[in-house]
Computed example of a mutant assay.
Amino acid sequence: MSKKLLMGATIVAGLALTAMGAQAGDAAAGKEVFKVCAACHTVEQGKNKVGPSLFGVVGRTAGTIDGFKYSKPMMEKQAAGYAWTEDNLKAYIINPKAVVPGGTMAFAGLKDEAKVADLIAFLASNK
């Protein structure tokens, strides 16, 4: 392999790893970030607080925890089949009112994207 081709492959591989790292969060760091959420939520299965349990939230359809009374706007999301993908969670964590206008989430949002990624990694580890 030529030196020029090898250098190009190394750059491409480095860019791919950088892009993957920018999206991947740290679940251990996310556990610390979750402390902000713990005032209203838990990751304990079957246990709701003021907000629903976030156990298994990644990939779950919005508004589907049995026994929790969701707001009308959240129930509209459920009826539309809205799922908590990592991208949808990211948008919601950053600005809940923009994703579910009229919803009851009191949290204003978390703007630090690294902390958001860490939080999502932590939530994804609870299933």
Rank of each mutant, 00 (worst) to 15 (best):
Y82V: 08
E86N: 12
V116P: 00
E113N: 12
A108P: 08
K69L: 09
P52S: 10
F55C: 03
K4D: 13
H41W: 03
W84Y: 15
A124D: 12
S125M: 03
A106W: 02
A39T: 00
A91G: 14
P96A: 11
G8D: 12
K69H: 10
G56R: 06
L54S: 03
G109T: 09
M1C: 14
F34R: 03
K77R: 13
A38F: 07
M7N: 13
K90A: 14
P96V: 09
P52V: 00
G102T: 03
F107I: 11
D26T: 00
T42G: 01
K90W: 05
L119K: 02
G51H: 05
P96Q: 10
V36G: 02
V100A: 09
F107S: 12
K49Y: 03
A24W: 02
A13Y: 07
V43R: 04
K97S: 14
G56I: 02
M75Q: 13
Q23H: 09
V12C: 14
I120E: 00
A9C: 14
I11Q: 08
M7P: 08
K115I: 03
V116I: 08
Y82K: 11
Y82L: 08
T61E: 12
Q23S: 08
M75C: 06
M20H: 12
T18P: 00
A124L: 09
Y70I: 05
V58Q: 05
M105S: 13
V99A: 14
V58A: 11
G81L: 10
V36H: 02
A39H: 06
I120N: 00
S2C: 10
R60F: 01
G51S: 07
A79F: 04
K97L: 07
K31Y: 00
A9N: 09
I120L: 03
T10F: 14
V12S: 14
E86F: 08
Y82H: 11
D118W: 00
I65W: 01
A124S: 14
M105H: 13
G46S: 01
G21H: 08
N126R: 14
A16Y: 10
T85M: 13
A29K: 05
T61H: 04
V12A: 15
C40D: 01
G67L: 06
A38G: 04
F55D: 04
A13D: 08
G25Q: 04
L123T: 07
D118C: 07
E44L: 02
L89D: 01
V36P: 00
C37Y: 08
I94R: 14
Y70H: 10
A117E: 03
Q78M: 10
N95C: 11
E32T: 00
Y82E: 11
L110W: 05
V12M: 15
G21D: 00
G103M: 06
P96S: 12
L89A: 07
F107G: 05
A83E: 14
K35N: 02
K127S: 11
M75P: 06
A117N: 12
G21A: 12
K127H: 11
M74N: 07
F107A: 12
T64Y: 02
E32A: 09
G8E: 15
K4Q: 15
A24P: 00
K4P: 06
G109N: 08
G81N: 09
T85H: 13
L89K: 03
L119S: 01
K90R: 15
